[in-house]
Design a protein around this nucleic acid. Sequence first.
RNA 1: CGGGGCGUAGCGUAGCCCGGUUCAUCGCGCCUGCUUUGGGAGCAGGAGGUCGUAGGUUCGAAUCCUACCGCCCCGACCA
Length: 532
Amino acid sequence: MVRMLSAGIYSFLPLGYKVIKKISQIIREEMDAIGGQEFHLPGLNPREIWEETNRVEAFGDTMFHIKNREYILAPTHEEIMTFHARNVLKSYKDLPQIWYQIQTKFRNEARPRSGVIRGRQFLMKDSYSFDATGEELDKSYSLHDKAYRNIFDRCDLKYFVVGASSGAMGGTGSEEFMVKSDAGEDTVAYCEHCGYAANVEVAQSKIQSKKRDENTLELNEISTPNVKSIDELCLFLKIDETECAKSRVYIYDDKPVLILMCGNDEVNEIKLEKVLGGKIRPAHIEELKKITGAEAGSIGPIGFKGRIIIDDRLKEANNLYSGANKNDFHIGGIDLKRDLKDPEYFDLRIVKSGEGCPNCDENLEVFSAIELGHIFKLGTKYSAAMGANFLDESGKENPIIMGSYGIGVERVMACYIEQHHDENGIIWDNTLAPFQVQLISLNMKKPEVVEASEKIYDDLTSNGITVLFDDRIDAQAGFKFKDADLLGMPLQVIVGEKKLKDKKVEVKIRKSGERFDVDLSDLLGKVKELIK
RNA sequence: CGGGGCGUAGCGUAGCCCGGUUCAUCGCGCCUGCUUUGGGAGCAGGAGGUCGUAGGUUCGAAUCCUACCGCCCCGACCA
């Protein structure tokens, strides 16, 4: 179906390419249905046009540059579409527009991986909407949302939608269409029950906070030789991990910030950056000693000079254990209310599988997923930068309001196969199958078998049915059966010597494994009925 | 870009540490002939390799050294 030529670069062989064409066709139909117009744009672009939006620098090393001319290979097409828009979309009367293309994109990925999932060259459908007002943009956006659902439904993919907070594209709204897969590069939290889905970077969950004990103990220093991790501490003191406050030190704005987490909870650095309002980095090992006087494993809030931020789960907790800022010592009886002045509380933790869904209380599942499609509202980022303006009803000049919407075409194929296979191979549904029927001729050395097979091939194909004919002369029956199951066409028609004597052939349904004999005279009708 | 691994026939591999008539191994595939033919056949014969590339060390290099190229894995990065 597909063969690698080089890292991240794949050739599509005839079978695989047929599938790609079928997927493209479904996308095309749904895009046309919402008023989209298809373009064919160059992959080779003058560098100049990308300088207008400063994206040569923004893409950096992921953009391919041509060596012997000032050209680049397009990693996406916002600039080119905007270029055409500014030449023709001059009036509010020209709007709205939806323009799309299904074409090859080039990205110099540092590390291509997971086969066709992340390549240096890949097929992408991308469309761009051009609107006069925010309300019109909302309309274009929801049209795409609907079209995307139709496309993925028609491809029979089990997917879910993540409402991502606007990413680096600087938009006001966006949704990602995701499919669960171990090959995925994103980690999401998903609730099967209510459909809550969020990237783990922003996901929340319902989880019990540490309750405040009635009696507050005094601070007490405990000798804990060689105890570094929370697990070791729990074992050593025979306490539960929820009684421990784990410390992490980050550097923000050149100053150390101490983060306290409950037990083995992990710090979600994205959430923390949001709280602090800028880039952070974990403190280096040498810095830790200087800042706290102790090494990692013995750090704690008591005596820490600097800002302290605490996860919500520890809100106003007492009787906690944490590091003593002195190697091999911990402190017990910590009361965050009593012992710290002005502690700040935020949700900072990375959610884990099995925790409560923030919407409906059912259990969340955390897993890897592949992004199949992404729709977002761009606003005027590109139109403003490139001077794509229109005149509104009052004759005033405004930048066109844009949206951008992508689908990874190869990813659709990869995800389909991942969701529709068994131990014997692929199970194609008629919609995406490269061929509808695989015709298996069991013994190509017998003239009567050859003759019957060829007649069936002609009958089926002349009736518009697509047939892959396994006419290998020396391949044995077993080979042909295994290969047919592996390739996975929906129907197999098996022509063998014995059944032919009774003017019968066998038909097998790949999906169910069901097989039965059919009279030669009834075959065409039966096949037509089964591939509906 | 950092760390690790690998490159020997179409594919998968042995040999490399310890250079030399066990040095180019084995399996699959491929070609010819005969037999076999409903879930990956049997017998007989046969073709196929500048050992990634370029230098170097040596009487002698798949084997040791250097550089480069390519691929795989882990990490960083990822509109």
